Simulated assay, not measured.
Amino acid sequence: MPQPSSARLHEFRIVSNDKIADGIFSLVIEAPALAAAIKPGQFMNFEVPGNAQSLLRIPLSYARADAEAGTVEVWYAVVGEGTERLSRMRPGDTSTVLGPGGHGWSVPADCSRVLLVGGGIGVPPLVPLAEQLAHDGIAFDVCIGAKTASTCAGVSSFEALGAASVAVATDDGTQGHHGFVTDLAADALGQTSYDYVATCGPGVMMQKVAQAAGEAEVYCEASLERMMSCGFGACSTCNVETTEGMKGACMCGPVFDASKVVVW
């Protein structure tokens, strides 16, 4: 398991902040040192101005980092007051971000084919992993789950990176399979030989993906969502119960060996 990078405080300037799906935004920030340091699966803790009573930063994963341009792209869902404030920030606005935090994905050596399974806003952390796989010449398939077609994001990104297949499941059947993304993942694991599964999304979804991967005897990692209040292991608000005891998601995660997660 790779060691977590030492998170640092970075000033950033917003390049763009645009809606890309229903309730989902793409935020591009200019932060050269962060863009050069962050690795697939790591996260950042954003300070969002506008509410003096809000002391906590907002932990977000990233979808793309361009070291040459000095930019990092984040996809986020507007789910509360903090992300609603973030959605109102405009190009040129500035603030600070703490990162990169934690450790990311650990693709096994000699891996030849990978299955990526993302649900909702759990899709973004899989995009830089797909980019890494494409760079390393490793084939990958993608399963994406969303509530409805208007909230589905990421298909074109994975296709542009050369995914062997991109399958979509929506709860209401407005795009792709009418049902859960776990159905697609189980089918893929039953039909194709994989060396590694990476998943991010709702806990119940990841638990089922991990179970299917375990039954297929494929190593699986999951990126868990917790409220990482401080982002550097001091507050213990992001603990994850594992077979090896309680571990903080901000330092020991957010990516965990799925077989060792007890509480999703």
Results as ranks from 00 to 15, higher is better:
Pro2Ala: 11
Ser5Trp: 12
Glu11Met: 09
Val15Gln: 14
Ser16Ile: 04
Asp18Phe: 07
Gly23Ser: 11
Gly23Cys: 13
Ala31Arg: 09
Ala31Thr: 08
Leu34Ile: 10
Ala35Arg: 05
Ile38Lys: 07
Phe43Asn: 09
Met44His: 04
Phe46His: 08
Pro49Met: 10
Asn51Lys: 11
Ala52Glu: 13
Ser54Thr: 11
Leu55Asn: 07
Ile58Cys: 08
Leu60Gly: 02
Leu60Ile: 08
Tyr62Glu: 08
Ala65Pro: 13
Ala65Cys: 11
Asp66Gln: 08
Ala67Lys: 14
Thr71Ala: 12
Val74Leu: 12
Trp75Leu: 15
Trp75Thr: 11
Ala77Met: 15
Val79Ile: 15
Gly80Trp: 07
Glu81Thr: 14
Gly82Val: 13
Gly82Asn: 11
Arg90Lys: 15
Pro91Leu: 10
Asp93Met: 15
Thr94Leu: 12
Thr94Phe: 13
Gly99Lys: 08
His103Tyr: 12
Gly104Met: 01
Trp105Pro: 01
Trp105Glu: 03
Val107Trp: 00
Ser112Ala: 12
Arg113Asn: 06
Leu115Thr: 05
Leu116Thr: 07
Gly118Leu: 11
Gly120Thr: 03
Pro124Thr: 03
Pro125Gly: 12
Pro125Met: 10
Val127Lys: 08
Pro128Tyr: 00
Pro128Ile: 07
Leu129Val: 05
Glu131Pro: 12
Leu133Thr: 06
Phe140Val: 03
Val142Asp: 07
Gly145Gln: 04
Lys147Glu: 01
Thr148Pro: 00
Cys152Arg: 11
Cys152Pro: 08
Val155Leu: 05
Ser157Ile: 12
Ser157Val: 13
Ser157His: 10
Phe158Asn: 01
Leu161Ile: 07
Leu161Ala: 06
Ser165Arg: 13
Thr170Pro: 02
Thr174Asp: 01
Thr174Arg: 00
Gly176Arg: 00
His178Phe: 07
Thr182Tyr: 03
Asp183Cys: 00
Leu184Gly: 00
Ala188Trp: 02
Ala188Cys: 06
Ala188Pro: 04
Gln191Asn: 12
Gly201Phe: 00
Gly201Trp: 01
Gly203Ala: 00
Gly203Arg: 01
Met206Val: 04
Gln207His: 06
Glu215Asn: 09
Ala216Leu: 09
Glu217Thr: 09
Glu217His: 10
Tyr219Cys: 11
Cys220Pro: 00
Glu221Met: 00
Glu225Asp: 15
Arg226Lys: 13
Met227Gln: 10
Ser229Gln: 10
Gly233Asp: 08
Ala234Thr: 07
Thr237Glu: 14
Val240Asp: 02
Val240Ile: 06
Glu241Gly: 01
Thr243Tyr: 01
Glu244Asn: 09
Cys250Asp: 04
Cys252Lys: 14
Gly253His: 01
Phe256Tyr: 08
Val261Ile: 07
Val262Asn: 06
Val262Gly: 05
Trp264Arg: 02
